[in-house]
Design a binder for these strands. Structure first.
Length: 626
RNA sequence: GCGUUCGUAGCUCAGCUGGAUAGAGCGACGGACUUCGAAUCCGUAGGCCGCAGGUUCGAGUCCUGCCGGACGCACCA
């Protein structure tokens, strides 16, 4: 099998003993939200000032604490406060027990009576054991949430403002259709791009189509042998599947004809020589493949700002390598090829240009990166490529650095692991790879079946459309839920479950929120007679939900900074789960208190806005009803 | 052999710059629909965080070694 250029080999063999589910939780370690970051920063300054004052009071004037060095964390329970400052680190310099330091500072600054409370985020400082905790002014926080969650920009932050980030992903070969591994790549790239943009960056999504090379020639050769000039329409196949069929047939050919490999090579040489007949065939088959692949992109709802094609870029990089040779960055081996010595980094030696002067894989990547930076000067370029290519990218980045490109320091390989299946091993050779289109078809079929079985057919309206969205939500959420760098096991049935840490569960909670709002709009309940009041949402019943919702911006920011959509996925599930428990215990529409009812309607709006935004960033379609 | 990476509950996974009793979902067991959709919710059981050292007031988190899995180590892409 000719290895694919970029994203493939995403399969392994693993048979789980039982089917099971997947999830992650947000319960313990929520992050400090973006808008809370201001809050935390403000309070860090206050705590630092207190520590410095304490030091001075004890005659330890040489002790200095800067706000940036103060450690803040999230208390494990809401009753303990909203921000926690552990006092352990200060025990030694002050020669005091941590709990005592906390008490001392709380005594000095407690209550904010002396103007101690943060300006934008007032609250109280209290000693809780060895921790100094801040209790937010809840009414103020609720006001902030209700006001900001109404805005279209809810969840966005300016943390990456002014940065230009290019994201390369997908990069399919044009000899076969997309498979499950590509789906992980695609959704990772698309989601990362959306999250990065939400964090304020200017993002450009690029897709380098690998449309030339020996693997294409194999499909062509098999087609010449068995195709009899038929078209995809003749065989009733989606065009990329048609091309893929012949790629698989090449294996048969290779068994029948020992010369097959060599013939494919000859075809490649003719292609490079510009042989009109070969070019015509290549064009025809490529168009079929690309047309089909584009259809899958549309279905998966991923898109690109720019397509680049290997037949345009494969000659790039040669000049740069020769230039590097002239400048002594590289060397010519005794064999005549051009090498780079990376032994000092433990990366060995690597060929950059063949002895006959022709390019190899890395040569093109060198040239392509330079071309990209020239045409769209980026602050950062992220390559979404399977983990099997980690070595390749280490070498590539180092080569560019040694060529003198300062921006080489801003190249990043978002490495992701293999996707395994419960059904066992999949191999291209054996035609047992899980095809992307087939998989989505199957998921949509199961979802449609479920809609009917649950008697929701009438309520959802267009069953096929909703089923397709549930299928995508199930697939995408499942793929994004796991840390990118880890190998994963995709369980289709499990991903479609409406219970648990799944896409459909989150979609369902969004639909439930929407259902409450719809009834309100239709005049149900007495919320319309009341007035929303932030103070009414400051109780113990509503506060945990409010607290969580406020964390959307910081979670997006953290997700962007870590280049990790799974952080946001975990958050989305936490919101859905928290909302589920909340609306069970806290009547919204059927509430005697019209003002409380109106206030909770506002909170449900915030829930809906938060879920909608998170789903959007995770490529999980948001549903009004399901 | 060398390199990268992973190893947390039966299963699949979370645990942000080391910090408050290690979390979730599924599965198991037991509960909740005349009350905003039960495609849901609640409760219980279940873990020397691969092993051994080290750093630290404090380690699932950092360092070293070992064990186990995955991936890589082409003038292939």
């Amino acid at each position: 099998m000719a290895p694919p250029r970029r994203s493939s080999a995403c399969f392994g063999a693993r048979l789980p003993e039982t089917s099971s589910s997947y999830c992650r939780t947000w319960a313990k370690t929520d992050t400090i939200l973006f808008l809370m970051e201001h809050y935390v920063d403000q309070w860090k300054s206050i705590v630092a000032a207190h520590l410095n004052a304490l030091a001075e009071g004890k005659g330890l004037a040489d002790l200095q604490f800067s706000p940036g060095k103060i450690i803040a964390e999230r208390p494990p329970k809401p009753e303990l406060g909203d921000i926690g400052f552990p006092m352990f680190p200060y025990a030694k310099p002050f020669r005091m027990a941590p709990a005592q330091i906390a008490l001392e500072i709380a005594r000095r600054g407690g209550g904010g009576a002396g103007g101690d409370g943060a300006r934008d985020w007032p609250g109280d400082l209290k000693a809780v054991g060895p921790y100094l905790n801040v209790f937010l002014d809840r009414g103020r926080a609720v006001e902030y949430l209700l006001a900001h969650s109404k805005e279209d920009s809810w969840g966005s932050s300016p943390s990456l403002e002014g940065r230009r980030v290019m994201v390369e992903f997908s990069c399919p070969n044009t000899n076969k259709p997309l498979h499950l591994g590509h789906l992980r790549n695609n959704v990772l790239g698309e989601s990362l791009a959306r999250i990065t943009a939400a964090a304020g960056a200017e993002v450009k999504k690029v897709n380098l189509i690998n449309d030339r090379g020996i693997h294409i020639c194999k499909s062509m050769l098999a087609y010449l042998t068995y195709g009899e000039n038929r078209s995809p329409e003749d065989e009733g196949l989606k065009s990329d599947h048609f091309v893929g069929k012949y790629y698989v047939l090449f294996n048969k050919l290779a068994e029948e004809d020992p010369q097959a490999e060599q013939k494919a090579q000859e075809l490649l040489q003719k292609w490079e020589a510009g042989d009109p007949e070969v070019i015509a065939l290549w064009k025809k088959m490529n168009d079929w493949a690309i047309k089909g692949i584009m259809a899958t992109y549309r279905r998966q709802q991923v898109s690109f700002d720019e397509f680049q094609f290997e037949h345009d870029t494969y000659k790039l990089g040669r000049e740069e390598v020769l230039d590097g040779l002239a400048r002594g960055v590289f060397y010519r081996g005794e064999d005549g090829a051009i090498w780079i010595d990376l032994e000092d980094l433990g990366l060995g030696k690597k060929v950059l240009l063949r002895k006959d002067g022709t390019s190899i894989y890395i040569t093109q990547d060198i040239g392509t990166a330079i071309m990209r930076h020239e045409t769209w000067p980026f602050d950062e370029l992220v390559y979404v490529v399977a983990s099997e290519q980690q070595y390749h990218f280490k070498v590539l980045f180092e080569v560019l650095r040694r060529l003198g490109y300062a921006w080489a320091a801003n190249l990043y390989h978002l490495s992701y692991g293999l996707v395994n299946l419960p059904s066992g091993r999949m191999k291209t050779r054996e035609g047992t790879v899980v095809d992307a289109d087939d998989l989505i078809d199957e998921l949509a079929r199961l979802a449609a079946q479920e809609i009917v079985e649950k008697g929701r057919a009438e309520a959802v309206g267009d069953i096929q459309s909703v089923a397709e969205k549930i299928a995508l939500g199930a697939l995408h959420y499942y793929l994004l839920q796991i840390s990118p760098n880890k190998d994963m096991l995709y369980n289709p049935e499990q991903s479609l479950s409406f219970t648990g840490d799944t896409g459909p569960y989150i979609q369902y909670m969004g639909a439930r929120a929407n259902s409450i709002l719809r009834k309100y709009e239709q005049g149900e309940g007495n919320a319309a007679q009341g007035t929303a009041d932030a103070a009414l949402l400051a109780s113990g019943a509503d506060w945990p939900l409010v607290r969580l919702l406020m964390e959307l911006p910081s979670t997006v920011e953290q997700s962007a900074r870590g280049r990790d959509p799974s952080i946001l996925a975990g958050y989305a599930h936490a919101v859905a789960s928290e909302f589920s428990a909340w609306y069970r215990d806290n009547p919204v529409l059927s509430n005697d208190d019209a003002n409380l009812s109106a206030s909770r309607i506002a909170l449900v709006r915030a829930v809906q806005a938060t879920l909608r935004r998170a789903c959007g960033l995770l490529c999980v379609p948001f549903l009004e009803a399901m």
